[in-house]
Design a protein around this nucleic acid. Structure first.
Lengths: 329, 329
DNA sequence: CCCTTTTTTTAGCACTTGTCAACAGTAGAG
DNA sequence: CTCTACTGTTGACAAGTGCTAAAAAAAGGG
């Protein structure tokens, strides 16, 4: 357990370092807490022994360690209220009644990325959690048609397919078969069910049944198994810890462009706000991910803010809380 | 007009520099053309006077200038045939009969990005060139529904909207009004026509006509005015000219993430393959864009490959020619 | 006051260029 | 056939540049 003074010092160091990424020395702190710099040095030494601070080299100021940030987030941080201006910007998006929920979320995270200068991510619900609700087709011309798939969680997706020598009537019959026989099935299992429950039936009355089956088969296997939306990737470039290290930029950017990778953000099923600091983020030792799940009716997903380890934790956590609240009611 | 020997030297320098980004000196060339290095130096001096070569500093080897690359592309380059392996990879995509054309193109450019290690871009046709063909609605639940818009160029898009206290019947009537009265209109002008031709009519029989009108209005104003698909942005990071210069990475990446910006690639309406070298690319002095339009039936768009100025022009142009051929037949 | 890191300075190395004088081959005039 | 003037080529050398590693100086904190 830390003393009050140690807590105070640690908090000061973390917040100062977040403000400006230069190691903070004992002098600056001593002024702020009315102690001699020597006293502060002793306390800093103690905090270093506890693994909460570290030095970049033998004789520099201290920098928070990963554990230091963790301790700060868990024990010292005071949530920051949003300022009126930022709140207004978000309310404009929220108040737009015509927008579907998923669009509201995407747009507001776009706004957040710009106002916080961090990268933001929206993850939809996974396909195995989505059940097929409805399939519709719209003919485009004699060869092409659009298939629309609606899931019970409100996820809608469309795909264009090409069919030769298949009549629209045959397609419509097949669609109504699918709607009657396998709606309610998790999207992931639809293609399997198509094979065993639909293919045998259409084999009897559709000439090009193999082709028709194949087309629908691919529509469902290609179904986005989880929507991933990343906003403001380049905000990461502005962070000084990256703009001086090309290798880091490469690894971070490659991960930020890999949807499959970003899906891992959702690994934790907790409903509250989670903070993954440095290596915990699985992206880079200098990256922090803050995320939360949201759930409104039967729609759910994850929103995340990605920034440097030196991120403004108090502002971001406060903001995410505000977002979650606004989404869920 | 350049002499044969000058052409030969310029070609050697460009190709060598493309292979490895180090200024090429007179010795290397002298070996390749059976001349003394002094002779080569004389010729190189001549080429520099003509503005085709330049030096990085007073006493370094020569590097092609922008005009040098231009001359190479226009006069010296011999198109390279694709190797069998690469061709096979693309044929797998092309041979997939069920895929709609736009999906074939996107997928094959994804493949190309991986095999060439360049960034690739697909631009769809612009919204003002697309005319509304058909609108459909699919009810999701009592508040939400999906609107599907189909254009005459085969572009399909769907949007989810929320309507309160509007009956499905009213929506369907409105949709059939739209289909009857304003299909054929350029997408850009649909919202205007909605106001003058649809709004007055539905005002008579729909209670929440304002809301209904607003929803459709936004569906059309939010219609993607041009689809932009970028693949393999991070390939740019691997290029040595960028990985040693953070500023360049920032500017290039910010532009590569800005869809509005990328749309400028299509400025030129030419149908053949166009090469924009360095500053001509409008992205960065070290970036080259090679692009071509394609047109198949009533679908059209632009595909582009973006790489360093030091890009393998012969391979890329050959590849784009192959792509264009395969798409258009 | 001591100590370590960081920055600046310095020196040496490897490389390429430009220049110049010598040289070889060619074509035309006498 | 020979002489001459000219052009293009060659080898050698001095000068300039960037890069690297080592040494020296400066800065900042304990």
């Amino acid at each position: 357990m830390l003393t009050d003074r140690q807590n105070k010092i640690l908090k000061l160091i973390v917040e100062r370092y977040i403000k400006e990424p230069i190691p903070v020395g004992s002098k600056v702190i001593s002024k702020a807490i009315n102690c001699s710099s020597a006293t502060v040095r002793n306390e800093m030494g103690e905090l270093e022994k506890l693994g909460l601070l570290e030095k970049t080299h033998t004789s520099s100021g201290r920098v928070p360690s990963e554990a230091g940030y963790r301790y700060y987030v868990d024990n010292l941080m005071e949530l920051k209220k949003m300022n009126a201006e930022d709140m207004l910007k978000l309310q404009i998006v929220f108040k737009n009644q015509q927008l579907a929920l998923s669009d509201v979320i995407t747009k507001s995270l776009q706004v957040i990325s710009d106002m916080m200068n961090y990268t933001t991510v929206v993850l939809g619900s996974k396909s195995h959690e989505n059940n097929l609700k409805q399939v519709e087709v719209i003919p485009i011309d004699d060869e092409n048609l659009t298939v629309i798939i609606v899931t019970d969680k409100g996820h809608v997706e469309h795909k264009n397919i090409r069919l030769q020598d298949v009549s629209l009537d045959e397609v419509k019959k097949t669609v109504s078969l699918i709607n009657n026989l396998i709606s309610g099935t998790p999207i992931d299992e639809v293609s399997k069910k198509l094979e065993f429950e639909i293919k045998p039936i259409i084999g009897n009355y559709v000439k090009q049944h193999e082709q028709l089956y194949n087309a629908f088969y691919h529509v469902f296997t290609d179904f986005t198994n989880q929507e991933v939306n990343v906003m403001g990737r380049h905000k990461m470039l502005e962070q000084p810890e990256f703009s001086s290290n090309i290798e880091k930029i490469k690894t971070v950017y490659t991960k930020l462009e890999n949807d499959e990778f970003l899906k891992n953000i959702e690994e934790d099923d907790a409903n509250n706000i989670k903070v993954y600091i440095g290596n915990e983020s699985n992206i880079d030792s200098d990256v922090t991910v803050i995320k939360t799940k949201y759930k409104k009716g039967n729609e759910e997903g994850t929103i995340a803010i990605i920034g440097p380890k030196r991120m403004e934790y108090d502002r971001v956590v406060g903001l995410l809380e505000y977002m979650k609240e606004n989404i869920e009611r």
